[in-house]
Design a protein around this nucleic acid. Structure first.
Length: 319
DNA sequence: CGATTTCCCTGGCCGC
DNA sequence: TGCGGCCAGGGAAATC
């Protein structure tokens, strides 16, 4: 499931190849969750940023860049734009559980049908601008670029979402509107973490999953971070020492995820179609019944706010 | 208003 | 081999 490291991996791959591209046409699967994808036709991509698990694609009707040219200068870290303009429009993409983004080259974009393999059997939705084209059966949106490449959004389980908004106007996306700080920002400190956790009586895992305390954690990285910090997922309070350990483990588990190209358990692929490698480094998630790598006890499974949770009953005792 | 529960989706897997 | 049932889970909506 794409969490912050997976979304960041995809963002870093897409920004250099899509900055400056102009969207010539768009197609969407016929449901409300993806319908707004067509509202960006005619606009140019000026940057691709990320907040938590949300991709934010900045678009302008008249792309101008900081150096005065009409082409972007690539190289900014974490989507920092080198563009003078503030986007006219933002397209927000959430990958949900199974969302994938990729960019098809021109020779696969028009003309002959694309062979997706015998198990797909996708229907031909060919239109005038996209040409005759067999779409993957779980394709939810496509954007045809003026250079004939196609941005493809595929989402088997349709938990993803696409929204087009005025820049910074996120009231239609409640979670994004109330998103906590980025885990790598200076604002996110052990003191901040502890203070925010103590504002609610909900279980720590529930709070971290809410995105309101800190942005970007999902089920995998939450379980990893709580285990590494030896904090019980049902705790409602943390000591100062625990807040330091938990802050550190949140940051380091997410950094490891990025460094390893994301976690592929089943569905996740990056923008090139490649699997990540972080699943090889997981020490807690999915290991219930196996030995705890801290204390040798047996990791247990429970359910917290409807989510499968793995933890060590011995070294993650409630305090 | 905050906390909790339900629902959306589909493919993979299990047992019979 | 086929099939019913269950599980995975981010986030929005409904309910408590």
């Amino acid at each position: 499931m794409p969490e912050l490291p997976e979304v960041e991996t995809i963002r870093a791959q897409l920004e250099p190849i899509l900055s400056g591209a102009t969207i010539a046409d768009a197609w969407t699967f016929g449901t409300q969750k993806f319908a707004q994808a067509t509202e960006v036709v005619g606009l140019s991509i000026i940057d691709i940023r990320r907040r938590g698990k949300y991709l934010i694609i900045g678009l302008s009707s008249c792309a101008r860049f900081a150096d005065g040219s009409d082409t972007p200068e690539i190289g900014g870290a974490y989507g920092t734009p080198d563009i003078a303009d503030i986007p006219d429009i933002e397209m927000i993409i959430h990958l949900g559980m199974t969302g994938r983004l990729s960019v098809a080259p021109p020779n696969e974009s028009t003309g002959e049908s694309v062979d997706f393999g015998s198990d797909f059997g996708g229907a031909d939705f060919g239109g005038a601008d996209f040409g005759a084209r067999v779409r993957h059966p779980h394709r939810r949106a496509e954007w045809l670029l003026s250079d004939d490449r196609i941005i493809e959004f595929t989402d088997t389980r349709r938990f993803g979402r696409i929204a087009v908004v005025e820049p910074g106007q996120y009231s239609s996306l409640a979670t994004l509107a109330h998103l906590g700080p980025e885990p790598f920002d200076d604002e996110f400190t052990p003191e901040f973490l502890r203070a925010r956790l103590h504002q609610s009586t909900q279980a720590i895992k529930t709070q971290l999953m809410s995105q309101r305390v800190v942005a970007g954690l999902g089920n995998i990285y939450v379980d990893e971070a709580l285990w590494a910090a030896r904090v019980n997922p049902r705790s409602t309070r943390v000591t100062k020492a625990q807040s330091v350990a938990l802050h550190d483990s949140i940051v380091s588990s997410l950094e490891a995820g990025i460094r390893n190209g994301g976690t592929t358990l089943r569905d996740y692929r990056d923008a090139t179609g490649a699997s990540g490698n972080n699943q090889l480094t997981l020490k807690c998630y999915g290991r219930s019944g196996l030995p705890c790598l801290h204390c040798g006890g047996t990791l247990a499974r429970t359910v917290i706010s409807g989510r499968s949770t793995t933890f060590c009953p011995l070294c993650q005792r409630r305090k």
